[in-house]
Simulated assay, not measured.
Amino acid sequence: MAAADVWTATQSDGPALAMFCQLNPEYDLFLTGEMPKVALWVEEFLTSQPPALFHWTQTHKLIARTHQHPDTIAAVLDVTEDMIAPGVGHISLFQVATALQGSGFAHVLYQALEDWLASRGMDVLRLGVLEGNPRGMAFWTRQGYLKTRERVGTAPSGKTHQSYVMYKPLKPLTLDAYRQRVPRDDPKSP
């Protein structure tokens, strides 16, 4: 990637992740209505896994740093391979530092992530966007993601939220074919 270096986060990145959390609480405030508890946020980022019922094969906890500020985390990403079905990459977190939003960094970072996931055999990507997040919806729509259904979720704080499940085929795939492959994303499914 031209503008950043990306690698797998480890426990030794804990202090830098804590600083990222402290400097960028907006997403957590939006999701839960509360300031994130830094130590818990870091631990959850480093260790959380999708439920086994989704039959995934590998998760990646990634951090990105820009060349201009190599000591500061610029973004955190949490992605899962083969989520629900083989070849389905799931992006559960793509959080760019507030100071970099609107700079074009997110687009460059996303394109590198998409290319990397495609090189690992993922041929369709999926994610959720919270209702009331017009910037997020606009960003993912610009990246080529399409809505497939709406879901209600509950944050650890107990706050419920509506989200839009979106997908992006990396090779030709109709919406109906996608929903057959990933039945959970069909609005007719529970």
Results as ranks from 00 to 15, higher is better:
D5G: 13
D186M: 07
G144V: 01
A9I: 05
Q11H: 15
P15W: 08
S189G: 01
V182R: 01
P156E: 09
G121F: 14
L31N: 11
R126T: 13
M1W: 03
H60I: 05
E150L: 05
W7I: 07
D82N: 13
R179Q: 10
F20M: 13
Y167H: 00
T154E: 14
E34G: 02
S157D: 08
G14P: 05
M35P: 05
T80E: 00
N24F: 07
P187W: 10
T57Y: 15
V108H: 06
G102D: 04
L46W: 12
A99Y: 00
V165F: 05
R120K: 14
R135V: 13
D176R: 01
R126W: 07
R184D: 06
P15S: 02
E43C: 12
F20K: 12
V6A: 14
R149V: 06
V129N: 03
A4P: 02
S163K: 04
P156V: 13
L17I: 14
L46R: 14
V182N: 03
Y110T: 02
G87V: 13
P190E: 03
I84Q: 07
D78G: 04
P190R: 02
G153Y: 07
A4I: 02
G33P: 03
G33A: 08
G128A: 08
L113V: 07
E150D: 13
A16H: 06
G33R: 11
A155E: 03
A138P: 06
T32S: 12
Q111L: 03
L127S: 04
L62A: 14
L173F: 00
I73K: 04
I91R: 11
H67V: 05
L23V: 11
Y145Q: 02
T141F: 03
A9Q: 08
M19F: 07
G132C: 00
A4L: 08
A75W: 11
G121T: 11
T174A: 00
T59G: 15
A74W: 01
L23A: 08
P15E: 01
N133C: 05
R179L: 08
R151V: 07
V96C: 09
W116T: 10
T80K: 01
E43W: 09
A3Y: 13
P134V: 04
K188E: 08
Q49N: 14
A118I: 04
N133K: 06
D5F: 11
P156Q: 14
Y178C: 11
L109S: 08
H90D: 07
C21F: 11
